[in-house]
């Protein structure tokens, strides 16, 4: 009995770092924010219960909220597919190259490690600046400069391109998936005279669908929560004309600039619901397009 208890204790000891961390930094704060979302809380005085008022304001009065949601959806629906397509393209290139693959893999992976950082966002600002390298290139080609910071969509494009540039982690996962596709399939297809395009759509893509699903979900969740680049590139303003006012940036502004933590908490919970809905949709549709090799085993 005692030995068994000891055994359990060892087990609990091993998982305790996670359990404590999960409770202290995720579950309890999340619970608190759920409560706060039904209150008016200015950070300094005690929260006051106001029921669903925060949610009502969000849906029916706050046009900025809808603007931030719109911007975020554009960001996600353009950014994620582009990033995945790019990741797959590079992964396939790396899958063919033989010797230097290790180096390439590292090099291409680097942006996704440093991509979320402040320094890279500042670099991105400069690249797109009026006197930045992109406009310089356009000018040498005889084209006019683009005022990236003047047009809401152009500014959002800066953010999207930064997110596409951070394709490394999806690329690694694709690369692993590509290596797992049995070579016999390609050989058989070759014998039947299938060209590269046919091989890609007939073999590579279907065989990769589980990984595409996995990547899409992971990247979609991550993209919804993007904060740093939007904050740095627009200097915390979400400008021009709220064109880069991503959801989390607006949430931050409500909480820490306007001191409306109750509203910010409500926004955070809406975000959770929205992300859950999109994830659920992805899962629900997956049975129509995801191909599992081991089905029926």
């Amino acid at each position: 009995m005692r030995a068994a208890w000891k055994n359990h204790l060892t087990g609990y000891a091993f998982i305790s770092p996670f359990v404590i961390g999960f409770l202290a930094f995720i579950l309890i704060p999340a619970g608190a924010s759920l409560y706060l979302s039904f209150t008016s809380y200015d950070l300094f005085t005690t929260p006051r219960w106001i029921g669903l008022d925060n949610y009502k304001e969000m849906f029916f009065q706050d046009s900025k909220y809808w603007q931030s949601l719109k911007v975020t959806l554009i960001y996600v629906f353009l950014g994620v597919p582009l990033r995945l397509a790019f990741a797959l393209l590079i992964a396939m290139l790396l899958n063919t190259a033989s010797k230097a693959v290790g180096i390439y893999r590292t090099v291409y992976y680097l942006p996704s490690i440093i991509g979320g950082s402040v320094a890279v966002s500042i670099m991105w600002r400069n690249i797109y600046g009026d006197e930045g390298i992109i406009n310089l290139l356009l000018n040498t080609l005889g084209l006019d400069s683009i005022r990236w910071f003047a047009e809401p969509f152009a500014a959002l494009w800066m953010l999207i391109s930064l997110s596409v540039w951070q394709f490394g982690s999806s690329m690694l996962i694709f690369l692993a998936g590509l290596k797992n596709i049995p070579n016999e399939l390609y050989e058989a297809a070759n014998v039947d005279g299938a060209g590269p395009v046919r091989r890609f759509f007939g073999i590579t893509l279907p065989m990769l669908t589980p990984i595409i699903l996995f990547n899409t979900i992971l990247q979609t969740i991550g993209a919804f929560m993007t904060f740093t680049p939007a904050y740095i590139i627009s200097k915390g303003e979400g400008g021009p004309l709220d064109g880069t006012l991503l959801y989390s940036l607006y949430l931050f502004r409500q909480g820490f600039v306007y001191f409306d933590m109750g509203y910010a908490s409500a926004m955070a919970w809406m975000m959770l619901i929205i992300v859950s809905i999109f994830t659920a949709i992805l899962f629900a549709t997956s049975k129509f397009w995801v191909h599992y090799e081991s089905k029926g085993d």
């Binding site: 490690i113 979320g116 490394g168 982690s169 990984i211």
Partner: peptide, 20 residues
């Protein structure tokens, strides 16, 4: 494949930690 995916997602989340 599954274990690879796991390993990869671990790397990813670690990288995400570092990145954020």
């Amino acid at each position: 494949m599954a274990s690879l995916l796991l390993a990869m997602s671990l790397t990813f989340s670690l990288a995400a930690c570092g990145g954020n």
